[in-house]
Design a protein around this nucleic acid. Structure first.
Lengths: 122, 122
DNA sequence: GATAGTACCCACCTTAGAGTTAGTGCCTCA
DNA sequence: TGAGGCACTAACTCTAAGGTGGGTACTATC
């Protein structure tokens, strides 16, 4: 019997592919990482995640909520107050994404060096 | 002193952000996962990674090579033969990405259920 | 009274990512 | 003889991602 070395995600029609794309999306990763720290309100989160627009943040939060990674708690008060946090499942992904991000940060010098070598070779 | 719970990657100007985007990009993840199995030739890889176009595969491989994650070995023969493999650093990221992909696959049922719940609530 | 903040939604527009097609030079197989 | 594979590149097109600016309904602060 063959061992599953490669996930089915390499197959075009695999349902896991869009999910993986959601958590590894440009803003998805950052939102997950930040929410791992604590729960955040919308505008707070927007300030924390550098460079995200309101539209993109709202969109990202919606898809992550729909997939069951993020919990949205809207309090019926004025002015509106909405708290975003991670679900247990969301916390699991977020940890993996964060460790990946930390790892990448630790490798920045190596990558920069690799690039100059690559660029020098034309 | 404060502990670094959140990577600098949340900052707009952090150099690690584009690197993270490369490895978490749509085709980047899949290429890394597949190359973890063994080295591949270009067309072989294209067939393995479902749905990728020649252009995108070439582009993805170039950025991953430039960042020092992928090794390109072009043999001066006719017809051309080019083997792509992971560098030691590339293997490290690839493992993390693959475990993330595996994890996501295992959570597909949970996500699907979360979605129906979400959609039902309108 | 005016400005700013809250948590968004909506419509418009731009741009970057991605797909399509064609072409290279040489080979192998039918 | 021609069809197809190899590993691409360049040019063209198109679509979806993302940004911009407006509006909502109400409050708190200056």
């Amino acid at each position: 019997m063959t061992e599953a070395l490669i996930p089915d995600v390499v197959r075009m029609d695999c349902p896991s592919r869009p999910i993986l794309e959601h958590v590894t999306s440009r803003w998805g990763t950052l939102v997950l990482i930040v929410l791992l720290e604590r729960s955040y309100r919308f505008s707070e989160l927007r300030r924390r995640v550098g460079g995200v627009s309101e539209k993109m943040l709202a969109q990202t939060l919606q898809t992550l909520e729909r997939d069951g990674f993020v919990l949205r708690d809207a309090k019926p008060v004025i002015p509106p107050r909405v708290d975003y946090s991670l679900t247990p499942v969301g916390e699991e992904v977020a940890r993996q994404v964060r460790s990946l991000a930390f790892w990448v940060e630790s490798k920045v010098p190596a990558v920069l060096e690799a690039r100059t070598t690559y660029d020098a070779r034309g």
